[in-house]
Each structure stands twice: as structure tokens, then as C-alpha cells.
Design a protein around this nucleic acid. Structure first.
Length: 960
DNA sequence: GGGGACGATC
């Protein structure tokens, strides 16, 4: 056994010194400590102490040293390869060394070089020569006849009566003239004005009737998949046609395309963006409508930036921006002060009330007097100054307003709004208001906007537990993206007479879900926002005040069928402090995918391009994202896209996950890893119905089997779903396990898309994810976990020690990442429920700070995989002769010389292999030298697998 | 011990 050469216990991390210091300093400090081993610590305690310290200083010194040691321990580990493995792998590597290297596959080389050497501008000029849409007289004639037939259709004529009543119809000629005489036009109008369904039809019909339909091809982008479909269906219906005639849609993995010319295609913004990669001039397209530009999602902002450049090369291309009626000058200004045509909406008037009115009406005065301290004691003291500060702020902000309205409201109302707790979400007040409306106001559904799951859950409980509640008189729905109600039709159905429908929702009901019979809206004034902090490099989820734009949108939800009422649960004074608009998404997010996509468009100076967008992201975020892309080898040192980066950019997926499925192709474990990738890039298939949270968590643990992996748990779910579907049993399987059939089906489709693309790029021989040829290693659990970690790298966390609380891991304890210090398993991660781990290392994809820094999805990782697939400044030995390997710039592994050599050689050779495969894509031939290398890697991973044998496994990571 | 909402050619 190797323990004869390097006895693990004596290589305990405690004898080595400061990790983030220079190596020299480390060595000197270690020497000062006399190189004592763990066992010798009890002996000469004073020997490492500098002379001249007295009294308290001695205590301070030891305390400091204990802290240093603890920090080192957190980041330091131990790895040793067994001698027989070393011999075997060294032999394999020496054979591999003699193998020849590969060269560019020629057609890929040309493509790659054209992307690196041409600019966006040049590329457009080249494409212009190829593209020229000719008018087709015969087609025009045919379409004109069809158009006449449509006009004669009774159904069409009947629909036209309704269409002509839409407000946008009053501006029809003005709009058509503006589009005819301008390249860019902005049309702004509020919900219900008909711009989305009508304006593209006005344009199409003007071409049809003038016999030039072959020159008209309209694309209209939508931010959401669902709206692309429903709008297309509606427009086809209005024209008394089926989808696929003059109207169609295209979203990811699903489309009904209309006729090639003389047609309207509703698509998601993402589809247009992807198309631009190979078709930057939008060949054959005559009109681009960008709808809902006011929502300011990343894709729309980027497309606007690109269109601004494209239009000068395509003078015949018309761009029509469509927006809600706020903030329109921003878009008009962005496009050289383009014409803005404003259209009135058709919503019914909505009366607004504010907190002070609600208190008066409900007689609610029951706000908690004390400042509630939910935080632990220590935090209270730490924030003491801050707390009182914000209290003073509140007082000085509310006092003048309270004085100005004191004659209009009862004294208890004025006292109420002066209480800072009146600004917190108050379930009692919400419940009182809901029953007040229910028993005193005319019929109509009540829609409550709350920030998130917790508040929805509390209010739901409060309502249904109330003495005023009865199941016969109320129908209460909770609406959240993770709840099944969001996918069901029942929430749209009108309740029987005398039954009050109450919908408690997140902002999913602001844009994505529209419920027509809502008459009363209750706006809590709060919503949740993800944000990205460039300094801490952390994504956060914060509860924030809504903006005036949100308030307007929420209010509008009450006026769809009749005049409505909106109750804002904040004062008019608070409204005065609210922002006009939400922060555009591009300022709140990381930019890896955006940057890689721009590189594909041959936009090399990404930072310069981003500076020309409507909102300019922080340069430090751009730089952080570029740095990660370099670390993934997607960009080279000069920030040019690499062959690997090009493959990653072509996949519709985050670059890290793209790398994961590329590795899965090389290592032949495609089915489980594409499941992991689909799950990470789309959404979790589990529903979380109210009150079933624990049940769902238990089911997740059940599906995880013994993998210690949320990712492989998801893969297991897909495998079992497929099996149940084969048996015709999928409905009950999904019902019993709180799974969404539609999400699972989409995940399956996405897997197919990944394998299609991998095959197209020649990394696979079969495009069936389940083909045995793609899955020789799919049952090698340790390999699967390694591939996951290789993709997710450098997202690595380490468990320091496990605390058990009520027979479960306490998820708040003792997990660290080098960048953030202490983090936690999110309670929904199956690893927050495990009681023992064989390895200390975990890979994760999503990290988000809310009440703590949570890792949402985690896989326990064999540290050998990290060392082979990770990066770092290499290895060496300190002055005590202790060998080490670095992982990244912080994790450090003690080892011996031969182990270090073998591991680093594998790392180097694997990097080479990946680059080689990127320039000459192809499956790994089992007879080739590449297979030998992959075999050697698998050998090392397998030999490091936890075997229950304490001699080496304990120091590599066993923590229980 | 807890999850605002979206999205990805041919």
C-alpha cells in the first residue's frame, strides 16, 4: 500500500502554511513552526512563537495562528494515487505521447477563420452581394386572388367588425404612411389597443392589395414563447385562416411556418437573435417588428443594438418598434428621433386607492408596535446604527405627508401610516381587505400581487383559516411559476355566481398570465428582483419596491372587462419615491452568453458594441464575463473566439453547460449529461404546490438514489419518466411525483436538440441521446459526476465538516467557496438532506444570495476529477519537501511527486485533446490514442472512488 | 430551512 511511502495522517494539512500568501512566505512560516506534524503539536507549543511577546500578545499570537490554520484547512486537501495506478497510467501516457497530433478539418478551419478575421460590417457587405429578393409577378397574382377570396369570406368580414373597433384602427393610415416613408417607426400603445395583432396585418394587406405581396415578409418578435403562439393563432383566426397560411409562428423547437413570402411570422426574440448569427442582413425579410421593447429584456436590447447597425446596410428593411406608452422617448431617441405614433388603450378606468384609504375603509389599525427583529441577536447589534438611521429616515419622510393629509383621514389612519411597520407586507391587513371586498363590493375576481412564494403561502393560509372563509363561497388560487396552477386552465374559468375568485400571484400575472374577469387588484407594492453585484460577483434576489411602470401594469389588470378598483398597499408618499421604471435586465445580469453570441456575429470589440446599447452594462461585469470565457478556453488571450468557443456559441445554452455536453460526447455518457444540461438551462420539472414543499423535497431525495447529486437526480427523473411513458403510465407518474409533463417533454426535446447539434458538429455518430453508441459510460457514476464538475468548473465548494441537526445536515453550516467564504446548500438541494459524504467537494451551477448565499444545485465530486478537469497555476513543493497541486487559485492539494506528475500530465494532455477535438471534431475512436488518454483519466477517477477503505479514502475527503 | 418573471435558426 502507498501508506508505507506517504502515510496520509502525517501529511495532514495542519502542518502547512498560508495558502494565499506567496510560496516563499509559506515555506518560511512553516519552518518557523519547525515542521511539526499533527502528532507533535502537543509537544513544544511555545517553539513557533516569536520572541519578545508578552501576556496578551502571546494569546493574540496563538489566536491569530489558530485562525490562519483553520483557513488553510478549509482550502487544503489531500490526494494520492495508488502506486499500481501510477504505473499503469504512466505507461498509457508514454504511449499517448508518441501519438501524432491532429490538424484542422478543412471546412471547419475556413469557417473558423472567417469568423475570426471578418468584421460584422464586412460580413454584412459580403452577404449583401448574395441577397436580393426579386419581385415574383406570378406569385403576386396568385396571392392577390387569395386575398380577394379572404375578403369575401364571411367569417373574415365578421371578424373585421371587431377589428375595426380597436383603437389602433383609427391610426391605420397614419401608421402605414409612417412606415412607408421612414425606415424606423415607433408605435406606442397600452394594453388592448391592438397594435400586436393589427399593425403587421395592415402592412401585409397593403402589399397584398397592391399586388406586391412577394416583396413582403414580416417578422414580429415577442419576448415570450406563449405570446408568439397565441398572437399568431389569434391573427390567423382573424383572417379566417389556419396557421401556416399567411400567418405562422416560430419558437424554440416548435413552429408552424407560414408561406415563404407574403406572410407574418411571430417569433421569440431569441429566434431572431440566433438567426442573425448566420443571416446578419435578415435576408428576404422586409419588416421587423420588435414588440414589447419597453420590457427591456436582454435579447430585445441586443437586437435593437444590432438592428441599428444593420439598417444602414439594408435601406429597404423596415423596423417597427412597439412599446407601452411610457418611456417612449428613450426608444425614439435611440433610433435617431424616429417617428412615434401613439395609440390609446381600451382598458376600462380603474380607480386607485392607497394604504391610507384602505386603512380608513377596513378600519385596520393593527400594525405591530415594536420593530420586529427576525434577525439573530448578533446581527441586530451589528446593524443597530443602521436600523435607527433608517427609522429616522422613515419618520422624516412620512411626517410631512401625514401632516398634509391629517384632516382627510381618521387619527388611527394617520398613526397607522406613521408606523414604519405599515410598509411591511401585512397578511392580516391583506386578509381583512380581501374579505372586505368580498362581502361589500360587487362581483369580480380579486388579484393580489405579492413578492414571492413565502408571502403567497402565508396569505393563502390566512385566508383559508379565517372564520369568514368557506370553500363554497370562495375559490382561492395561488399563482407562481413553480406551482401547477400556472399551467392549468382552471384559474381562467369564471366561478359560479356568488363565489368569489381570489388569485394570489407573483408578478407572473403582470405580463405572462392574463385573467380576464379580474375587477379588483391589490398591489402590495413589492416584488422580487435578481441583481448582479459586480464587486462581490454574486447574484442576489432582493425584495424591492415596485416601480411606477409595474404599478400601472398591475392596475391595468383590473380593467379588462369592466371598470375596476386597484388598492395599493403603500401611501401616496411612498409612491412619490418609487422609480419610474425597473432596471433593464442587461444591467442586472452576467454577460457570458451575450458576449459569446456577439463574437459569433463577428463583433470582436464586444465592450465597444455594448457601449452603444440603450443601457450600457457596467464595464467590470463585461470584464468578469470575458475573464470566465477565457478561463473556459472559449476566448483566447486576445479575446478572440477559439475553436472550442465557436462550438459552445453554436449551442443554445450557457457556455459552461455547453462544455459539459461536449465532454459527455467525448466520454460517451450522453443521455444522463444531456438531461443534466437540459434541466440546468430550462427549468426544474418539479412543481411545488402550496403545503407540499416537504413532500416534494422527499421525492427529490428518493429520485437522487445514492448519487449525492441534484443534477443526476434530474437525470434519473427523465429516465424514469421515459420508462413510464413507454408503459403509458406517465400521467399518474407525474401526478404522484409532482412533476410537470410539459416541462419534461420540453426537456426531452431539448436533449434531442443538443444531440442533433453535437452530431452536426461531428462530435457524435448518432443523434439519439439514448443510442448505446453514445452511452458506453453512462452507468459510471463517478465519471458522470466528474463530467458535471468539469462543465461547472470553477463553481466549486467544499464542505468543511458536517453538522447534524435533527438527523439532517444543517444546510447553513460549514460549506465554503474560495470567493464567498461560507455558503449553504439551498434547502431544496438533496445534499442539504444527506447525512454523510464520501468526498468534501461539490460542483454547483446556480449560486444566489438571499437570506444566505445558497447553492441551489449541487453534485458531490471526486477531487481527482477537479484536479484533472480544473485549472490552476500548477504545482510544486514547499521547503519542507511537501508536494502540492493547486486547483484554481485557492484550493490546494497535498500530494507526492509522482501523483502530482501524473495528475498534471493528464490535465495538460486533456486540455490538448479538447483543443484538438475542437479544431477537428469527431467522436473518439476506441482504437485511437485519444481513447487511451480518456481511458487513463477514467482509470484515475475510478481508482479514487470511495471504497470504504480508510487508508486513502479518508484523507481524500470522507467527512463522516 | 426556502424558490420574481422570461429566452435560444435553417
Amino acid at each position: 500500500m502507498e501508506s508505507n511511502n506517504d502515510e496520509p495522517r502525517r501529511l495532514d494539512g495542519r502542518t502547512v502554511s498560508g495558502l494565499q500568501q506567496a510560496l516563499r512566505e509559506q515555506a518560511i512560516r512553516a519552518m518557523n513552526r519547525g515542521g511539526r506534524s499533527h502528532h507533535g503539536r502537543g509537544g513544544g507549543r511555545h517553539r513557533g512563537r516569536p520572541p519578545g511577546l508578552r501576556g496578551r500578545e502571546i494569546g493574540m499570537f496563538y489566536r491569530q495562528r489558530a485562525m490562519e490554520r483553520e483557513q488553510q484547512e478549509e482550502l487544503e486537501s489531500f490526494v494520492l494515487l495508488q502506486p499500481e495506478i501510477i504505473v499503469k497510467v504512466q505507461k498509457m501516457l508514454s504511449e499517448y505521447d508518441s501519438a501524432s497530433t491532429s490538424t484542422f478539418r478543412s471546412e471547419f478551419e475556413n469557417y473558423f477563420k472567417s469568423i475570426r478575421s471578418t468584421s460584422f460590417e464586412q460580413n454584412m457587405k459580403e452577404k449583401l452581394l448574395e441577397s436580393c429578393v426579386e419581385q415574383d409577378d406570378r406569385l403576386d397574382e396568385k396571392m392577390m386572388i387569395e386575398y380577394d377570396e379572404m375578403m369575401d369570406n364571411l367569417k373574415f368580414q365578421e371578424n373585421m367588425i371587431t377589428r375595426e373597433k380597436l383603437p389602433v384602427n383609427t391610426k391605420k393610415e397614419e401608421i402605414l404612411n409612417a412606415i412607408a416613408s421612414n425606415q424606423v417607426v415607433l408605435i406606442s400603445g397600452d394594453t388592448g389597443c391592438g397594435k400586436t395583432t393589427q399593425v403587421p396585418q395592415y402592412v401585409l394587406d397593403s402589399y397584398l392589395s397592391s399586388g406586391k405581396a412577394s416583396l413582403c415578409k414580416i417578422f414580429c418578435t415577442q419576448p415570450r414563447r406563449i405570446s408568439a403562439i397565441t398572437v399568431a393563432e389569434r391573427v390567423a383566426w382573424e383572417r379566417a385562416q389556419h396557421l401556416g397560411e399567411s400567418v405562422g409562428y416560430q419558437i424554440r423547437l416548435q413552429s408552424v411556418l407560414p408561406h415563404e413570402r407574403g406572410s407574418i411570422t411571430y417569433c421569440t426574440t431569441g429566434i431572431l437573435l440566433k438567426r442573425l448569427e448566420s443571416d446578419p442582413l435578415l435576408n428576404g425579410i422586409s419588416h421587423i417588428f420588435l414588440d414589447e421593447v419597453h420590457e427591456r429584456d436582454v435579447n430585445t436590447d441586443v437586437v435593437m443594438g444590432l438592428l441599428k447597425e444593420i439598417i444602414s446596410h439594408r435601406p429597404d428593411l423596415k423596423v417597427i418598434l412597439m412599446s407601452a406608452t411610457f418611456n417612449t422617448s428613450t426608444f425614439s431617441a435611440y433610433f435617431n428621433n424616429c417617428t412615434n405614433i401613439e395609440v390609446q388603450g381600451t382598458l376600462f378606468p380603474v380607480t386607485e386607492f392607497y394604504l391610507e384609504d384602505v386603512l380608513e375603509e377596513t378600519k385596520f389599525a393593527n400594525f405591530p408596535e415594536e420593530v420586529q427583529r427576525k434577525r439573530p441577536k448578533w446581527e441586530k447589534y451589528r446593524n443597530k446604527y443602521k436600523q435607527s438611521d433608517s427609522l429616522d429616515d422613515y419618520t422624516s419622510f412620512i411626517e410631512p405627508y401625514a401632516r398634509s393629509v391629517q384632516d382627510k383621514y381618521s387619527k388611527f389612519v394617520i398613526e397607522g401610516i406613521k408606523n414604519p411597520n405599515s410598509e411591511k407586507i401585512n397578511v392580516d391587513l391583506l386578509t381583512a381587505l380581501i374579505f372586505h371586498i368580498s362581502f361589500n363590493k360587487p362581483a369580480g375576481a380579486i388579484l393580489v400581487f405579492l413578492p414571492g412564494y413565502e408571502a403567497i403561502s402565508k396569505l393563502h393560509t390566512s385566508i383559508t383559516n379565517s372564520k369568514f372563509y368557506s370553500a363554497e363561497k370562495f375559490k382561492v388560487y395561488a399563482l407562481h411559476s413553480m406551482m401547477p396552477t400556472a399551467d392549468q386552465k382552471s384559474v381562467f374559468s369564471r366561478p359560479p355566481e356568488n363565489v368569489r375568485k381570489v388569485i394570489i400571484s407573483t408578478n407572473i400575472a403582470e405580463t405572462s398570465i392574463t385573467i380576464d374577469d379580474v375587477v379588483y387588484v391589490i398591489n402590495s407594492g413589492k416584488s422580487k428582483m435578481t441583481n448582479y453585484n459586480p464587486e462581490t460577483k454574486l447574484q442576489t434576489l432582493e425584495e424591492v419596491w415596485t416601480t411606477l411602470a409595474n404599478n400601472k401594469q398591475r392596475r391595468g389588470r383590473a380593467g379588462r372587462v369592466q371598470p375596476g378598483i386597484c388598492y395599493h398597499l403603500f401611501t401616496r408618499a411612498r409612491e412619490f419615491t418609487m422609480d419610474a421604471l425597473p432596471t433593464p435586465e442587461i444591467l442586472r445580469t452576467r454577460l457570458e452568453s451575450v458576449i459569446l453570441n456577439l463574437k459569433m456575429l463577428r463583433i470582436h470589440d464586444v465592450a465597444q458594441f455594448l457601449r452603444k446599447l440603450v443601457s450600457v452594462p457596467d464595464d467590470s461585469v463585461v470584464q468578469t464575463s470575458i475573464a470566465l470565457l477565457k478561463r473556459l478556453n472559449a476566448l483566447d488571450e486576445r479575446e478572440f473566439i477559439t475553436p472550442l468557443g465557436l462550438h459552445l456559441a453554436r449551442l443554445p445554452i450557457d457556455p459552461q453547460i455547453g462544455k459539459m455536453i461536449l465532454l459527455a460526447a467525448l466520454f460517451k455518457c450522453v443521455d444522463p449529461i444531456t438531461s443534466v444540461a437540459a434541466n440546468l438551462s430550462f427549468k426544474d420539472p418539479f412543481y411545488r404546490p402550496l403545503g407540499k414543499e416537504k413532500l416534494v423535497d422527499d421525492i427529490r431525495v428518493k429520485f437522487s438514489k445514492d448519487t449525492k447529486s441534484d443534477h443526476l437526480m434530474a437525470a434519473n427523473v427523465i429516465t424514469e419518466y421515459r420508462e413510464e411513458k413507454r408503459k403509458g403510465n406517465e400521467r399518474s407518474f407525474c401526478y404522484d411525483n409532482f412533476l410537470s409533463i410539459s416541462t419534461l417533454n420540453q426537456l426531452e426535446k431539448m436533449k434531442g436538440q443538443f444531440t442533433d447539434l453535437l452530431m452536426e458538429a461531428r462530435f457524435l455518430e448518432s443523434s439519439d441521446p439514448t443510442d448505446p453508441k453514445n452511452n458506453y459510460n453512462s452507468s459510471n457514476l463517478d465519471l458522470l459526476r466528474s463530467i458535471i464538475s468539469a462543465g461547472l468548473y470553477p463553481n466549486v465548494a467544499k464542505v468543511r465538516r458536517v453538522k447534524i441537526c435533527k438527523r439532517r445536515v444543517d444546510p447553513r453550516m460549514d460549506i465554503i467557496t474560495p470567493e464567498d467564504g461560507r455558503v449553504s446548500f439551498h434547502p431544496s438541494s438533496i445534499n442539504s438532506k444527506q447525512t454523510g459524504f464520501e468526498y468534501k467537494f461539490f460542483a454547483y451551477f446556480m449560486k444566489q444570495k438571499s437570506t444566505a448565499i445558497y447553492l441551489f444545485d449541487t453534485t458531490m465530486i471526486n477531487p481527482r476529477a477537479l484536479l484533472i478537469f480544473g485549472d490552476g497555476e500548477g504545482a510544486g513543493f514547499d521547503q519542507l519537501g511537501n508536494h502540492f497541486i493547486l486547483l484554481g487559485d485557492s484550493f490546494r492539494f497535498r500530494t507526492n511527486r509522482v501523483s502530482a506528475e501524473v495528475i498534471l500530465k493528464l490535465r495538460e494532455k486533456f486540455d490538448e485533446l479538447l483543443q484538438k477535438k475542437a479544431i477537428n471534431p469527431g467522436p473518439v475512436d476506441p482504437e485511437s490514442e485519444d481513447a487511451l488518454l480518456l481511458g487513463a483519466i477514467t482509470e484515475v477517477l475510478n481508482a479514487g472512488r470511495f471504497s470504504g477503505h480508510p487508508d486513502y479514502s479518508s484523507d481524500e475527503g470522507n467527512v463522516m
